[in-house]
Design a protein around this nucleic acid. Sequence first.
DNA 1: TTGTAAGCGTTATCAG
DNA 2: CTGATAACGCTTACAA
Lengths: 330, 330
Amino acid sequence: MNKITTIKDIAIALGISTSTVSRILNGKNTSNSKLAEQVLATARELNYQVNTAAKGLRTNKTGMIGIIVPEIGDDFFGSVLSGMEEIADANKYNLLLCQSNESHDKEIELVNSLIACNVEGIVISVSKETQSLDFLNPFLALGKKVVVFDRTLTHPEIPAVIFNDWEGTTMAAEHLIETGHKSFLYVGLDKNLQNNKDRLSGYNQVLSQSNLPLCEEVYLDQWNFTSTDFKEIWNNKYDAIVCFNDVIAARILSIAHEIDLKIPEQASVVGFDNRLYSQYTFPKLTTVEHSTRGMGKHVINLLTSLLNDTEIIPVEMSTELVLRDTTIKR
Amino acid sequence: MNKITTIKDIAIALGISTSTVSRILNGKNTSNSKLAEQVLATARELNYQVNTAAKGLRTNKTGMIGIIVPEIGDDFFGSVLSGMEEIADANKYNLLLCQSNESHDKEIELVNSLIACNVEGIVISVSKETQSLDFLNPFLALGKKVVVFDRTLTHPEIPAVIFNDWEGTTMAAEHLIETGHKSFLYVGLDKNLQNNKDRLSGYNQVLSQSNLPLCEEVYLDQWNFTSTDFKEIWNNKYDAIVCFNDVIAARILSIAHEIDLKIPEQASVVGFDNRLYSQYTFPKLTTVEHSTRGMGKHVINLLTSLLNDTEIIPVEMSTELVLRDTTIKR
DNA sequence: TTGTAAGCGTTATCAG
DNA sequence: CTGATAACGCTTACAA
């Protein structure tokens, strides 16, 4: 079993000191390019890899970022994570991945564990239980940085990255009203999420400008509501069903087949997210698209610029209405 | 800005040595429970968190596992990752997440970066380009452990975790034959993937036992094939279309609406994976389910037992046929 | 049981 | 430019 190569091995091989090796490896010896070449060559030869733990111990820079999301398996977070990894990798940061399983206690535990790992920063999307970001104060007090995204709460020292949800639903509302829709049912997930408020208010704002009644609101468990539940809610009262996200919209389409509710003939349906499967529903789902990978990229950009006082590279986080087959002119 | 608490701070606060603190924190001082209590209390009070980098430097145990997948945003890997995180967390391991973007060069780079982070083990699902696991030999030579999953290649020292894909498609084939299907089209993604061979051979084995012609095979890019492409392939020749996965099956259902191919009346369709959206297609997709989270759990179980010489806790990785509406009796 | 001291791999300081 | 030395936070012989 080989031992791992250290700078000491390189130093011995060339008969020089570890400090010189370290300097050259870090590009801090300007002249003496001949020696530099030798060191680099030997390093390559021995497949030297810096020990980031030792380096971090000395410099207090570990190049690690902690990620806390409620559920990794959720395809929304998966897509955001993918964008995060891309930018982190480009900036030589590593991601330590954790899931809170929607538990606030678990979040607190994870933050401590990330402190233990000496991460430089944390990006987090909070659990449903979480009421405040104050539990991150001990972490901030260490001079570390936090960015909160998607599921956010306000905190004086923590920047938040969210979609402009309001803009997205405004576009959807305008389209629906132009095509003659008059009575809106809004199907949400959790009344208190900031996202929910933004999406709902986008619809309501346009409705009120057009002198139409505001959305009636109903909140359902996205995985478990039944067709009977929905039939009663629907009750032939609405010509537009606007949903918090595509999961809910897809379930409604599925239920519509069961209760013989014709979409889009009897009611139009609009989702939110433009998830992969929204093009596989029948009819194909009209929805609001925003760039989830773009969000992930932006979050890590923001954090790394916080960590290094560098400029933020703008990332497109556009929103647009994707018209498919669940909406129709009335 | 607070400094982080170290064992030194605790030692000073109580007027004892750091070694004593260390021992107590690691549960190595059996008696003198009074002192132990004091240490623990002070640690809690100062919100002490062990510095895992320093600990790892000394003990060569970092508690970190590197994960390399081709694409984090893929919902299959997302789900596997979620299972991994659960077990890793339960065993006090942290996960370092990387994506190869299907590039073998990137994989090599990532392994080096994981060596730099001093991970104890790596779990990897290889890129499409990867032809051999030999690039992991330097890592293995360091006495570290590797487990390969889902997209696997054989290597004398690396255990592989895969689904029993053969079993799954065997069940599907039996069902289709019992319900009177006679001519099979297999739609795959990449002829060389081991998964692909297993799934295909599950179908073919049952067909040959039943004296029916084997599947005709066609391989398509899961995101980009067109309805014209498919119409030509289909050409009214098959009564069963069996697919490598649900993504392909969902696209075929979507295309079927366009080219006026009636599913399941003209042909039955079977997917593989039971992904979330397979219940949102129309008609709802018949598919083979296997536990992706279960796979993730099993992989980390296996790796941690390799690392600690502990026993492997069995995890259910069952396969079953989920009958929905894309198959019919002929 | 306790403290002293050395060392894990690296980098920063300082003297030459 | 280079090398000796100390230090980062922690664990572990070894000695007391």
